[in-house]
Simulated scan of single mutants.
Amino acid sequence: MAPVPSTNRPVAERWYLRHAALVRITHWINAVCFTLLLMSGLQIFNAHPALYLGERSDFDHPAMSIQARLSEDGLVGETMIAGHSFDTSGVLGISSEDGQISRRAFPSWITIPSNQDLATGRRWHFFFAWLLVLNGLVYFAWGTVRRHFDRDLLPSRRELSHVGREVLEHLRLRFPRGEAAKRYNVLQQLSYLLVVLVLFPLMILTGLTMSPGLDSAVPQLLTIFGGRQTARLIHFAAASSLALFVIVHLVMVLVSGVLNNLRSMITGWYDLGSPRTPDVT
């Protein structure tokens, strides 16, 4: 049940059941799966921290790499993107462990396991990848039956015409209140559709394309994605985009009312009468 409000407004006007139980459950499963997939994926990337275009690795011309080079001052982290190099010491390329500097694309604190162990990282990655797929299928089936996507996430032409205004409102940290807060705004709708219908499917399909066994059964995947190495590059880009989405998502949760947001995604109940209503949940 919703908490008893400390205001004279009727309960029915203040508390709104925004998220169904299945949405809340799949949301938190997704959060756990994606976190562990990201950390184990970075462990896998560290085993060969370079990305290529095409079917085979072109070691002399990577599309992107995170390496360490030896300079007069010692090891220097260096990230290369499309032929342009950047000094990323202290962030990427080198890692300090037990007081010793070592070559490592991503630091140990963000990988599973923390030590370099490709086999264990792959086991973690594959387990939570399939759990994410099953969870996503449940959510997609429920959303299709309940018309969640076209009713809640598909913006109307009128809403699309307000994209510029919504961007300005977000930059000013002004968020919907009252009745307007019951429905996702157009920026939420577009970002959630991008995640649900583009980034997650793209990440899953490119992940499957990197499997030699599946390539034998469905060779068309290699054709679609332009080769195994291109699929790996797209997989990395999709995962990076999802990580960026999560960061923005968390920032919006914090600035738009963290307690109200967390309550709505844990219990389902959303306080329309609070001083700052949630914008992203």
Score class of each variant (00 low, 15 high):
residue 119 A to K: 12
residue 198 V to G: 11
residue 189 Q to L: 01
residue 276 R to N: 00
residue 97 E to R: 13
residue 151 R to I: 06
residue 178 G to S: 07
residue 106 F to Y: 13
residue 270 Y to V: 00
residue 227 G to M: 04
residue 29 I to L: 14
residue 57 S to P: 07
residue 257 G to K: 09
residue 46 N to S: 07
residue 118 L to F: 15
residue 25 I to P: 10
residue 63 A to K: 02
residue 213 G to K: 13
residue 157 R to V: 01
residue 277 T to R: 04
residue 126 F to M: 13
residue 207 G to T: 01
residue 103 R to C: 02
residue 209 T to K: 08
residue 82 A to V: 04
residue 76 V to E: 14
residue 97 E to W: 08
residue 45 F to N: 09
residue 114 S to Y: 04
residue 217 A to E: 04
residue 268 G to Y: 06
residue 92 L to G: 06
residue 1 M to R: 13
residue 162 H to D: 11
residue 56 R to G: 05
residue 205 L to A: 13
residue 241 S to H: 01
residue 15 W to A: 01
residue 224 I to H: 08
residue 239 A to G: 14
residue 195 V to I: 12
residue 64 M to W: 14
residue 36 L to C: 13
residue 18 R to Q: 03
residue 227 G to N: 05
residue 39 M to T: 02
residue 136 G to Y: 12
residue 141 A to C: 03
residue 92 L to P: 05
residue 158 R to V: 03
residue 122 R to N: 11
residue 48 H to V: 07
residue 243 A to T: 14
residue 180 A to D: 07
residue 142 W to D: 07
residue 141 A to E: 00
residue 20 A to H: 11
residue 271 D to F: 01
residue 103 R to F: 02
residue 112 I to R: 13
residue 79 T to Q: 12
residue 240 S to A: 15
residue 74 G to W: 01
residue 129 A to R: 00
residue 131 L to Q: 08
residue 233 L to P: 11
residue 268 G to W: 04
residue 112 I to S: 09
residue 156 S to I: 06
residue 216 S to I: 02
residue 64 M to C: 09
residue 149 F to T: 09
residue 214 L to S: 06
residue 78 E to P: 05
residue 204 I to H: 07
residue 33 C to G: 03
residue 96 S to M: 12
residue 224 I to T: 12
residue 74 G to E: 02
residue 37 L to W: 03
residue 185 N to A: 03
residue 111 T to Y: 03
residue 37 L to Q: 09
residue 76 V to M: 12
residue 131 L to G: 05
residue 174 R to K: 08
residue 279 D to N: 14
residue 170 H to D: 08
residue 139 Y to N: 02
residue 85 S to K: 15
residue 169 E to H: 11
residue 94 I to A: 06
residue 71 S to D: 11
